Simulated scan of single mutants.
Amino acid sequence: MNDRSAAPRRPLTLWIRRVAVLTQKDLKQLLRDIPLLIFVVYVFTLDIYVAGVGMTGDLLNAKLTVHDADHSQSSRELSYRFMLPYFDFAGEVTRPVHGLDLLDRGKTMMVLDIPARFDETLRNGQETAHLQLQVDASNVALGYLAPSYVERIIGYFSQDYAQRVRMSPISSGDPPPVIASIDNRTRVFFNTNLNGHWFNAVGQWLTMMTVVAVLLPAAAFVREKERGTIEQLLVSPVTPFQVMLSKVIATTLLVLLGSAASMYAIMQPLIGVPFRGDALLFFALNALYVFNISGLGLLMATFVRNQAQVGMLTILISAPMTMLSGTWTAPESMPPWLAELVNWSPLHHFIECSYGIIFRGAGLDVLWPSVLALIGLGGALFGMCVWRFRRQFG
Rank of each mutant, 00 (worst) to 15 (best):
G54S: 13
P35C: 07
T229S: 15
H98K: 10
R9A: 14
M1V: 08
L316W: 08
G196L: 07
T128V: 03
Y144L: 11
F241G: 07
T94D: 15
F350I: 04
V19S: 02
S181K: 06
D174F: 14
F82T: 04
I317T: 00
I317G: 00
Y289R: 06
Q126F: 14
L103P: 05
A6Y: 10
L46H: 05
D365C: 05
F275P: 00
V202R: 09
L281H: 08
G57R: 09
P177I: 14
L37F: 06
G91A: 06
R117Y: 08
M110W: 01
R164T: 09
L122V: 10
S333R: 11
R390T: 09
F189L: 06
D3R: 15
V150R: 10
D278E: 12
A279H: 03
T13R: 15
P320G: 07
D136V: 00
E226D: 13
S318L: 05
S148R: 12
L78W: 06
D68K: 06
V238E: 07
A301Y: 01
I375Y: 02
H67Y: 15
L122N: 01
M109E: 15
R305H: 01
F157E: 00
P147C: 05
I230C: 08
S325V: 09
N2M: 12
F199C: 05
A220R: 09
W15I: 09
G378F: 01
R117D: 09
P217Y: 00
F382R: 04
A373E: 01
R17G: 12
T192H: 15
G277N: 07
Q126S: 13
F393D: 02
A6H: 12
L245N: 04
F382A: 01
L14W: 15
G57L: 12
F382D: 01
S138E: 11
G54V: 13
R152Q: 14
I170K: 14
L299R: 04
M267H: 02
V238N: 06
L131W: 13
F190Y: 07
T94P: 15
I375H: 03
F89R: 12
N195V: 11
Q134W: 11
M110R: 04
N124Y: 10
F241C: 04
